[in-house]
């Protein structure tokens, strides 16, 4: 019932982000975009994803955008119209929509994802792991290697940012002029 409304809101936000030149407003609207997405995920019963989208997309990323804006420009530079990128976007978008037509319908019980491993996890988890939240059982135990890899990726991202932005060392020099 409320889903079409949220999708229209998503589209409106996307168009507004495209049209605006004020980067502060764009950062705020992209946060709102994530919040609406989180609402959609909740409606689709993907509460874990909604959690992450709300905290990372609407909260953390917006703060990072603001931090970047504080040290760069506040308005988008006017770009001349270019045909090449537009064509690439149109082709990729068309391919994605074409591929999406082949995907199983939302909630289809005969979809491959529900008939192979998913069914096996649901069947085995109660006796093997005995946890009410099978998502956690799958992520941390059956898919333990993947989750370890994800944690390593996050750690690597942190190391990368520290190396690129200098981290602590460079800032200790001007410690005195604050507070």
């Amino acid at each position: 019932m409320i889903e079409p409304l949220l999708f229209v809101l998503l589209l409106a936000l996307a168009v507004a982000i495209l049209k605006l030149k004020d980067l502060f407003a764009i950062a705020m609207l992209s946060g709102a975009f994530s919040l609406v997405s989180a609402g959609l995920f909740t409606l689709m019963d993907a509460v874990d994803v909604a959690f992450t989208e709300a905290a990372v997309g609407a909260g953390f990323t917006t703060v990072l955008f603001l931090g970047t804006l504080a040290v760069t420009a506040n308005t988008e530079r006017q770009q001349p119209f270019r045909l090449g990128p537009l064509l690439v976007v149109l082709v990729v978008g068309a391919v994605l929509i074409w591929a999406g037509l082949d995907a199983p319908l939302y909630g289809d019980p005969t979809a491959p994802v529900h008939t192979h491993l998913g069914a096996e996890f649901i069947g085995r988890a109660p006796s093997e792991i005995d946890m009410p939240n099978i998502v956690t059982a799958v992520l941390a135990s059956y898919r333990g290697y993947d989750t370890m890899g994800e944690t390593a990726v996050i750690f690597t991202a942190g190391v990368g940012v520290m190396l690129l932005l200098g981290g602590r060392k460079g800032r200790d020099l001007d410690e005195e002029d604050q507070d």
Binding site: F60, L64, T68, A70, A157, V161, M162, L165, G167
Partner: peptide
């Protein structure tokens, strides 16, 4: 870590 790096 990322917040400290970007905000600082």
């Amino acid at each position: 870590c990322i917040y400290y790096a970007v905000a600082g």
